[in-house]
Design a protein around this nucleic acid. Structure first.
Length: 493
RNA sequence: GUCCCCAUCGUCUAGUCGGCCUAGGACAUCGCCCUUUCACGGCGGUAACGAGGGUUCGAAUCCCUCUGGGGACGCCA
């Protein structure tokens, strides 16, 4: 039986690292027919926000990842945590430390405070004195009494990193309960994992050294510790662990969503960071992913995710997204594209808090399925529709007169082409074949190359040189708009 | 500072017990082809075993040292 959990703390939006931890847990659970539990680690009341919690749920919903109904909040399980702490204390594995809290000093970790293990005098306090001071109301933290005298080391076998041991002499007396009575992360997490019968804890490698402490807690609680699998960390191009504070919105899952990533492309990309199917496969469906996922394929070294000021997304993620777009059936792609089209073209830019419609919704709705097949090979993100398809939606285009001039031609040729095009198109059937026949005949008549014929027309109707294939484009635009735009372009010459 | 982890192309990675590795794939990049533009697609190129010692007939693969990188060391999670 496999029971895994995803345990985010709601102190910021859902970021890529957390999403990956979720995905690996999810894959593990689904692959093994296990259960996936969601647990909100919200013991730090100071830093928790509802907005952050919303963002986490929103992100998971977008990724189309589910869990098995059970959602727990640590803040509602205080009694369990307290009881567990009491149990450890009564069993003699913890002691009260009445030392006042250390004041927030910046480099606490490296300013000569190196090998801190415990506060002097506190381990030795007799039970009577400890009880007396506690009942007198003196504040204390409950610390784990690391068994340095009776035991050399703590060991466990990580499912990814293999056998791990750490000398008890290197483990400090960590806190279980704060002076407020609230449990620390270590206490709450282990008490819950034990109570919820979690069998595998799959989490970031930044917890690897914490695991020795957790091992100790489980033992003190008298329960069999779960198995652990630590995942290599995701690091930024600057070499540091990915963090919201340092690297900004690019680490947020919603940033990917808003730019027009498809959920599965994102999941696919994230899976490739620190895990490999070992057979050179890169694009995988969700089905394939969960069929072949295994902790054995998880790597041990950290993975750099590439992004920069100019390219906010890892090029491989973008490629994967483009591939996914190209392989989507037109109707599905259209549905995905619709909100982006509406946001890009539907409204008058900067029309204030109550935006005004620029293009009617039904027009956008009608056009998107026609445009989708023409741009699917030309966009990498759904949001690219804004630049790739503007001329289909916007009422007017503004061609650069210089661009109307064809290769190895001049303004006179452009004028001639447009004049001829106007005549030919007025007669032509607006289908791919009809337009093909009409315009090639025109080129022949003018004794110019097909390309020279097409370029001025393309620029006239699209407003620029780079656009989807001409005939399909003209067909979607329709005769009226094409003739109108060609006439307008002629005036520019 | 103390402890832990890691180390193959720019990036993500393959490399089961050491020989089949003159190190494979993908992205990115460069070139060519296809082509009405842009894309897509096809073909090809550049590009890596951090260093030094061992062990061995033979090491990217095993051991040691160094170096480099990351992480943890909080009454945060």
């Amino acid at each position: 039986m496999h029971r895994v959990r995803f345990a985010p703390s709601p102190t910021g939006y859902l970021h890529i690292g957390s999403a990956r931890t979720f995905i690996f847990n999810w894959l593990y659970a689904r692959h093994n027919g296990g259960t996936m539990i969601l647990r909100i680690d919200d013991t730090d009341v100071e830093r928790n926000t509802q907005a952050s919690l919303d963002s986490i749920f929103e992100g998971l919903k977008w990724l189309e990842l589910d869990w098995d109904g059970e959602v727990y909040r640590q803040s509602e399980r205080g009694e369990l945590h307290a009881a567990s702490a009491r149990q450890i204390f009564e069993a003699g594995h913890a002691y009260r430390d009445f030392t006042p809290a250390r004041v927030e000093s910046e480099d606490a970790a490296d300013s000569g405070h190196g090998g801190w293990l415990f506060n002097p005098g506190m381990r030795e306090l007799s039970r009577e004195e400890s009880d007396r001071r506690a009942s007198a109301g003196e504040p204390f933290v409950l610390r784990f009494l690391v068994p340095r005298e009776t035991r050399e080391s703590v060991a466990f076998t990580d499912l990814v990193y293999g056998p791990q041991t750490k000398a008890t002499a290197d483990i400090e007396d960590f806190a279980l309960l704060r002076s407020s009575g609230m449990p620390t992360y270590h206490m709450a997490s282990c008490a819950d994992d034990a109570d919820l019968k979690i069998t595998q804890i799959i989490r970031g490698q930044d917890h690897l050294t914490n695991t020795f402490k957790h091992q100790l807690i489980f033992e003190a609680l008298g329960v069999e510790p779960p198995q652990f699998a630590h995942l290599p960390l995701l690091i930024a191009p600057d070499g540091a662990k990915l963090s919201k504070r340092k690297h900004g919105p690019v680490v947020s899952v919603t940033t990917y969503r808003d730019a027009g990533f498809l959920p599965h492309a994102f999941v696919n990309f994230v899976c490739l960071l620190g895990w490999s199917p070992k057979d050179d496969r890169e694009r995988m469906t969700r089905r394939e992913l969960l069929d072949i996922f295994s902790l054995e394929g998880v790597n041990r070294s950290n993975a750099t995710i590439n992004f920069s000021e100019t390219e906010p997304f890892d090029p491989k993620a973008v490629w994967l997204n483009a591939e996914t777009i190209r392989n989507l059936p037109v109707d599905e792609l259209s549905a995905e594209l619709l909100p982006f089209a509406d946001a890009s073209f539907g409204w008058i830019p900067g029309s204030g808090p109550e935006p005004q419609r620029l293009v009617p919704e039904d027009k956008i709705r009608r056009l998107v399925p026609l445009v989708a097949p023409l741009i699917r090979e030309r966009i990498k993100l759904l949001g690219d529709i804004r630049d790739a398809a503007d001329f289909f939606f916007l009422p007017t285009v503004h061609p650069d007169p210089l661009e109307l001039i064809p290769q190895k031609g001049d303004a006179a040729m452009a004028a001639l082409v447009l004049q001829e095009a106007e005549v030919a198109l007025a007669e032509a059937t607006f289908t791919h074949d009809g337009l093909d026949a009409a315009l090639r005949a025109s080129a022949e008549k003018l004794k110019i190359k097909a390309g020279q014929m097409f370029q001025p027309i393309r620029v006239a109707v699209c407003g620029r040189k780079n656009a989807p294939p001409l005939f399909e484009t003209l067909e979607v635009l329709g005769k009226d708009i094409c003739l109108e735009r060609i006439a307008a372009a002629r005036k520019l010459l």
